[in-house]
Design a protein around this nucleic acid. Structure first.
Lengths: 150, 150
DNA sequence: CCTTGATCTCAAGTTACCTTGAGGTCGCAT
DNA sequence: ATGCGACCTCAAGGTAACTTGAGATCAAGG
């Protein structure tokens, strides 16, 4: 029934403009498998309009501290082929919300422990509990997911 | 009065062991100006015992999302030459605590906005306010400070 | 004295996330 | 048909935060 017409797809430049990311970044996301495109006869990329939303989601998720690989995992749960529905996005965002909650909690707890250590002035990681293995914020070094904040 | 004896200084291996970081990381921190050392006649580094605390602070600050450059700024306010007092550490940690508070606040606000957007399912960055310029979490890309969380 | 583990320097590699540049093609308005 | 901006690919560069490796020296116990 629904035929795909020229108006259903957008160029990489349009996608970039509508989401505010650089064209090079869009190509990068595609290379990483976060978004997909079809090609014209002249080998140019064409994206679905719904990919604007997809890229927007990537940006939001990044700001909330998810790594691209994690974002990819989330996006992979979207239905293939068809444009995601509002419900699809709600489900995915809900799962993300839980991750965010955890991160905020961990950060808050670590802050509290810092306060303790500051209170006594010791800063000793053995006496204080900042190094408590069970409650660490991550020893992933330069490799783990990171939160970008001002 | 107080003469510096052999027992006041520690080797890079000891510092690494006491703080849990790799020897190479200690060298890296020194290169970046976060810690300092003197050399023995045989060109080996010798650190002050108080540098254990200094490195510990670096680790904590990193976990709370500060970049090494920011941590350096904080550490630079410590008195030169003498071992920092409890008061010194308290002051520095207090200033850090404020930064953390801000980050947690921003994260919480962004999460709230995500909820809104999810609520309506639009995910449109123009209709919703996740892109509100005045309240962004940072567009620093791969360059800004990041929070490492599990 | 000699061996062995700890250090030293310096260069290059790693991961995440992109950007920049070179050299070449598409596609649409005039 | 032509010009020019938008695209294409592929390689290389850039930052943060380190690690790894090579080749050489130190330092301390036996």
């Amino acid at each position: 029934m629904a035929t795909i017409t020229k108006d259903d797809v957008i160029s990489i430049g349009t996608l970039a403009a509508r989401t505010g990311v650089a064209v090079s970044a869009v190509r990068f996301y595609e290379e990483k498998g976060l978004i997909h495109s079809v090609r014209t006869s002249g080998n140019q990329r064409r994206f679905l309009r719904s990919d604007i939303r997809r890229v927007s989601f990537i940006l939001i998720a990044q700001r909330l501290g998810l790594a691209l690989s994690e974002i990819e995992r989330e996006l992979a749960t979207l239905p293939e082929g068809r444009t995601p529905t509002v419900r699809d996005w709600q489900r995915i965002s809900h799962s993300m919300r839980e991750q965010i909650d955890q991160k905020i909690n961990l950060m808050t707890r670590t802050r509290a422990k810092l306060d303790e250590c500051i209170g006594c002035g010791c800063l000793s990681l053995h006496k204080c509990q900042l190094y408590n293995r069970d409650d660490r914020m991550g020893a992933a070094g330069a490799t783990g997911p990171r939160l970008v904040l001002d």
